[in-house]
């Protein structure tokens, strides 16, 4: 069965139609990439999946593991296993990264009927994951994302994803603002999570990221629609030819 099924999704923002009939089926174990020019609705799609306010679904549906995702509040979606790696993670002064991570992990564990993680276990777990992502241990003592560099913010997003072990993760322009070293670290973090029970939707403007996170399917989005789908080779074609012909078609 499909893990995520998007059917004829139409979304408007402040009365303006942004998504004009997106249909996409992603099975467990698959990595899909959506590429497209700026302003075409890629981030709208990720926000609608995660449940951000301000987006009006005028038609269509999104189901996750058979449940109506759009009927769930954002926190319930996350606890059910949906994760959005933000393009622009917000800085929240006064909230420590560690307290935030622990609260998020325990919210999920309670939903799953598991006992809450204690402080020692939590530290041990985070330290192990930090090491793989090249995150200094003292970063989690700092206020959430405050003063983090662009690369640190993206690594912190991947750390959160690693700790929360979602079943479906959307990566929204995770490559933006990353140098090649950071890109590699972030990609390794994502690749480590790939597996038969988990699916990814990687949203990007550039083909570069897909050299590191190699997708099973690539979709081209333009004008609020998916205008072409193919295998990973489609990404190379786009890199060589640009989006112009799709823009004209949209």
């Amino acid at each position: 069965m499909a893990l995520i099924e998007i059917k004829n999704l139409h979304v408007s923002v402040q009365g303006k139609d942004i998504l004009k009939g997106i249909s996409l089926t992603i099975n467990a174990g698959e990595v899909h990439a959506i590429m497209g020019p700026n302003g075409t609705g890629k981030s709208t799609l990720s926000n609608v999946i995660a449940g951000r306010e301000g987006y009006e679904v005028t038609q269509g549906s999104v189901s996750f593991d058979g449940q109506d995702l759009l009927a769930m509040p954002p926190d319930a979606r996350a606890r059910a296993g949906v994760f959005l790696a933000f393009q622009y993670p917000v800085e929240i002064p006064g909230v420590s990264t560690s307290a935030f991570l622990k609260t998020a992990i325990n919210a999920k564990r309670r939903t799953e009927g598991k006992p809450e993680i204690d402080a020692m276990e939590f530290l041990k777990l985070v330290k192990a994951k930090n090491k793989a992502l090249g995150i200094p241990d003292d970063m989690i003592k700092r206020p959430l994302n405050v003063g983090f560099s662009g690369g640190e913010k993206k690594r912190a997003e991947v750390l959160q994803m690693t700790l929360l072990e979602p079943r479906f993760a959307v990566l929204d322009e995770t490559d933006s603002g990353l140098d090649i070293d950071a890109l590699k670290i972030v990609s390794d973090g994502v690749n480590a999570l790939r597996g038969p029970t988990r699916a990814f939707l990687v949203i990007t403007h550039y083909q570069r990221l897909l050299n590191y996170i190699v997708p099973d399917y690539v979709h081209v989005m333009a004008g609020g629609r998916i205008v072409k789908s193919g295998g990973k080779e489609l990404a190379y074609e786009l890199e060589a030819e640009g989006y112009t012909k799709y823009l004209a078609a949209a």
């Binding site: 954002p74 926190d75 996350a78």
Partner: peptide
Amino acid sequence: FYLMARGIDA
């Protein structure tokens, strides 16, 4: 939204 998107209730 950021906190809720990580599963933390409102």
